[in-house]
Design a protein around this nucleic acid. Structure first.
Lengths: 217, 217
DNA sequence: CATAAATGAGTGAGTATCCACTCATTATTG
DNA sequence: CAATAATGAGTGGATACTCACTCATTTATG
């Protein structure tokens, strides 16, 4: 399952970091993630989690004392491990290859990040849904994600602007257009279960044109 | 409150349609909508609804026999009354004014629909959140919304394509880019509580460029 | 090496709480 | 006074969470 790859990896890291996590606890985490993604957090019972994990209900509470802690445990590796790593890897790659053109940047962003979205579809969905409803989680997430994007993406945008490869719009708007376009496609794909890859080329073209610098420079 | 205008209007229609709805029932509907938007459906209790509506808990169940019916009652007018009317009004306006250019169309869409999104922010949010989690609701909604868009927006797109004002992309992709761009801005605005109007001009420019026809025609 | 002690993951029946929903009773309206 | 609306205490079922106990594995001891 390509779907679980990245998160599996994240769980591995957490395991390695904080000693051993026994296999049943991993099953609990995996079952929680799957059920939260399918039904939403609030509609999932600890009984269901135990059943899908093939575990007694008490086991669910062994390591994580509340259902909310379970949600945090499922989401945390994503924001603290996966997301930073992938943003930085991406930035490093872009910088290394010295993408000079808008086309190169956007192509890289789209292909790379679409794959990322698809691989982490489950967590993305849980995160997204809960962010809409939980004020605290939202603030916490934004406090992490926004600076990360500012530090890694904005310099690249500035460079391209200087080279007249991007219009002189605020960085957050440019980022918004890029991220928004991708997320809207991701949402649609994940709801209709259609493969997201087919949309790639058109998105690239759309973004490339949309983010063309205005001649009034 | 500009926020409640359109929905208030929709509730009015439903009232007129199916006899009288006593004022306390309207308070119940309004309270439900507000709480669902703030906390999500699953995290809202009927006790909370009664409290906010200034009503006894039994009153909540007077007209709507289950909590799910209450959700349906809050959402239904949106999809069956507000949305169709606004789509058709929009299409009629566009056709009447005979927008020949991409710029005119997009400007009209953005200004019009952004105002619409903002006015119906609460319902939009509830609908959006629940669509992510409830399969049945999703199918039901798509079965209504998709044909509506196809019938009203696609012909306009086709005409513009014929006039070389739009690229020869599938209509659903073009619609996706437009709707996605707006929704992403709406989501951001509604989460950060920043006014959405400030983004309008940039969105228009971005979409206009992004949807420019490719010279390879 | 054999035995005892300690550890801690796992269990599942049990509990306190919460919540959607009911209904007998009371207030309101025409 | 009839009919409808509103009330709020009450109910059953579900759900998050607990706890006394088991048992396999690891560690200490003579």
């Amino acid at each position: 399952m390509a779907t679980e790859m990245s998160i599996q990896a994240a769980f591995q890291e957490v395991m390695a970091a904080s000693g051993e996590i026994p296999p049943k606890q991993q099953q609990v985490l995996a079952a929680s993630l799957a059920l939260f993604a399918e039904q939403g957090f609030a509609n999932t019972t600890t009984k269901q989690i135990a059943a899908r994990a093939g575990v007694a209900e008490g086991t669910v509470y062994r390591r994580y004392k509340t259902k909310d802690e379970l949600l945090a445990a499922v989401l945390a590796p994503f924001t603290t491990e996966v997301l930073p790593k992938l943003v930085k890897e991406f930035a490093a790659k872009v910088v290394r290859k010295k993408y000079a053109t808008r086309h190169a940047l956007i192509t890289a962003v789209i292909t790379d990040r679409l794959a990322f979205l698809q691989e982490n579809g489950q967590v993305m969905r849980v995160l997204f849904t809960e962010l809409l409803v939980r004020t605290d989680l939202r603030e916490q997430f934004l406090a992490r994600a926004v600076p990360m994007i500012q530090a890694n993406l904005y310099p690249i945008l500035d460079r391209l602007k200087a080279n007249d490869e991007l219009p002189d719009w605020p960085n957050d708007r440019i980022a918004q257009f890029m991220i928004g376009t991708m997320l809207s496609q991701f949402t649609r794909s994940s709801l209709t279960a259609e493969p997201i890859t087919t949309v790639g080329p058109l998105m690239i073209q759309f973004l490339e044109q949309g983010l063309a610098p205005t001649p009034t420079a």
